[in-house]
Write a protein that binds this DNA or RNA. Sequence first.
DNA 1: TATTGTTATACTCTATAACTATA
DNA 2: TATAGTTATAGAGTATAACAATA
Lengths: 159, 159
Amino acid sequence: MTDAEGAAAPPGSQRRSEPLSGTLTFQLMTLGAVAADRFAAALAPLDLKPRHAALMAVVGRGLAASQLEVAAHLGVVPSLVVALADHLVRLGAVERIRDPRDRRRQVLLLTQHGHRLLERCAAAARSVDEELAARLPASERAAFTRSLGALANGAGFPT
Amino acid sequence: MTDAEGAAAPPGSQRRSEPLSGTLTFQLMTLGAVAADRFAAALAPLDLKPRHAALMAVVGRGLAASQLEVAAHLGVVPSLVVALADHLVRLGAVERIRDPRDRRRQVLLLTQHGHRLLERCAAAARSVDEELAARLPASERAAFTRSLGALANGAGFPT
DNA sequence: TATTGTTATACTCTATAACTATA
DNA sequence: TATAGTTATAGAGTATAACAATA
């Protein structure tokens, strides 16, 4: 089977191999954009964007406290964290607390409302999960999710 | 095992369940961004962005001919296709040909150089694939790629 | 009058650079 | 002098709206 895959190739031409669309990279890029769009749409009623949810997640799980730590963890620039935190403070989801040992540091803390919001973000993500995975045989889902996790760790991911 | 997963939870608190970071949606979003960044970096020396590669791919495979068709296929607005095509024309990768039956239509055609460039885009994607999949046991890759393809079809994907 | 493509403009997201306050 | 945070500004990417040519 030297020449499979559908219609005839122009005989003199380059031996087929292009299929960019078949690469992992391309499919991850595409699906990632779809996931991001749907997640954003699901968060919109909460007046939140995916970045806000990500910030709340790292703060809520204690992975980062000061704004600089959050920026590093998210892989974004500190000035962006300021804007994201400003919004979350306006919503009453986080509080800024000056570290008494080093008054330059602003420690971010989820309020109770913040925890509830974060929970609703996660619920939104899970419901997008359902839509996305609908076409995936239930038997494949676990393996897929596990592989996806492995890939996410392998990459320099900016959770 | 009602209470697994690491450290103790504050006893009075909400019963854990948040892990936004464990959702398919979140991981696809994150990995998709990583894949897009790396692919963009790999394309930069060619003076191309992922969108240009996507355009060349749909035109090269005959999935869309007129700019409007390309826009629909890519899920972008027609004016963006104009800009992308302008750039590709400057590079000598595509030609615009007025459809003689309907002189409003601009049919996009890959030049020979365009085919070569598209091939190099695909090669770039495959090399990013290698980096990304490095952490994935070879035995899992085929299944993962297949599931990913299934998901991509299930979504309203804007290839 | 409707449609294809184009141009001009605006919006969103994020980064860079300059500045303030603490250390 | 160096660091955490902030503000002001700029850039990339994409959309919306107005317009031209053709149907």
